[in-house]
Amino acid sequence: MFEAVLSNGSTLKKIFEGIKDLCTDVNFDVSSEGIKLQAMDSSHVSLVSLELHTDVFEQFRCDRDSMTLGLNMKSVTQIFKICGNDDSVTMRAEDEGETLEFTFEKGEDRVSTFELKLMDIDSEHLGIPDTEYQCNVKLPCSEYQRICRDMAGFGDNMTIDCQKGGVTFSVDGEVGKGKIFLKHQPNVEEKHKVIVTVKEGVELDFALRYLNNFAKAAPLSDHVQLGLNSDTPLSVRFDIEDKATLGSLKFFLAPKIKE
């Protein structure tokens, strides 16, 4: 049997909101270590990787070595509309069960339950190596969200140019070109901090449609971390409640290849 209780149900709600427009069906891979999810978008240029460690849950039980729970994202987000922001969530599935039961509770006054039919989803797991990035950028989620939204008005692709001292986001579209520079700002108050760590400068182009999609996970944490290496996928990482010990939601995006 699998049973997990999360007092802060909105965390799960935010996770599903963050991935629902990228993936239609996903597998929840449950083990005694927690929950993992890996899924690609339909065009196979981006990858979502979720890790929820048991520390994020108040209670966690998985009797089997592993269980795979196939979820339709549209149905899950529909179910999570039932979940209030202060509700706790309990997920429960029998070993050979065909459903995942969600219970949303606020105290003992209001208890809602929904049994979701599980799906059989074929998915291949890719091996994501532990990568040391040439450039790491930590910036407020609100800033990331704003840059991607504003730049999407001018073009389809955005160049991220990371150099010592700061990072430049630029777009070159039909009406003209523009750029936004964020300076390495380690000594300001936490919510405005921008940390740019560079071993070697990297400049890459990415599709704004995907960068904007990843921004939907912004409510999960205060800061987002970008990892860049030349000619490898960009990593966009949201630590759950800004604590890597609880887990993370990571997105990977293949760079545009310049002609």
């Binding site: 240029v45 990858l47 310049k258």
Partner: peptide, 14 residues
Amino acid sequence: KPGQKKIESYFALP
């Protein structure tokens, strides 16, 4: 238009 490689080409199947 610049192209894009599939994400599988970067991450090996274990």
